[in-house]
Amino acid sequence: MNSHKPIKKAVFPVAGMGTRFLPATKAIPKELLPIVDRPLIQYAVDEAREAGIEQMIFVTGRGKTAIVEHFDMAYELETTMTERGKSLAVLDPTRATPGDIITVRQQVPMGLGHAIWCARAIVGDDPFAIFLPDELMVASKGGTGCMKQMVEAYNEVGGNLISVLEVPQEDVSSYGVIAPGKDLSDTLTEVTGLVEKPSLAEAPSNKIISGRYILQPEVMGVLKDQGKGAGGEIQLTDAMARMIGNQPFHAVTFAGRRFDCGSKIGFVEATLALALEREDMGADVRAMAKRLLRD
Rank of each mutant, 00 (worst) to 15 (best):
N2P: 12
N2C: 06
K8G: 01
V11W: 01
F12E: 05
A15N: 05
R20L: 12
K26A: 14
E31L: 11
L32W: 08
P34W: 00
R38Q: 13
I41E: 09
E47R: 07
E47G: 07
E47K: 03
A48G: 00
A48C: 04
A51Y: 00
M56Y: 11
G61V: 07
R62L: 13
G63T: 01
A66H: 10
D72W: 10
D72Y: 09
Y75D: 11
Y75N: 06
E76V: 14
L77F: 14
T79F: 03
G85R: 11
S87R: 08
L88F: 12
T94M: 11
T97G: 00
I101A: 07
Q106S: 11
Q107P: 07
P109A: 06
I116W: 02
I122C: 04
I122L: 15
I122G: 03
D125E: 15
A129E: 01
A129D: 02
E135V: 06
L136G: 05
L136I: 15
K141G: 00
G142Q: 10
G145A: 12
G145I: 02
A153Q: 07
Y154K: 00
N155T: 08
E156K: 13
G158V: 11
V164R: 06
V167H: 08
S174G: 12
I178A: 02
A179V: 10
L184A: 04
L184T: 09
D186T: 15
L188R: 08
V191E: 02
V195N: 03
P198M: 09
P198E: 06
P204I: 14
N206A: 13
K207T: 00
I209Y: 04
G211Y: 02
L215F: 00
Q216L: 13
E218Q: 14
G221Y: 04
G221W: 04
Q226V: 01
G227L: 02
K228P: 00
G229C: 02
G229I: 01
E233K: 15
L236N: 08
D238R: 06
D238G: 04
R242D: 06
R242P: 00
H250F: 15
F254I: 10
A255T: 15
G256T: 07
R258E: 11
I265E: 13
G266H: 05
G266M: 06
A270P: 08
A270G: 06
L276T: 01
E279P: 07
M281C: 10
K290W: 03
R291F: 06
R294A: 14
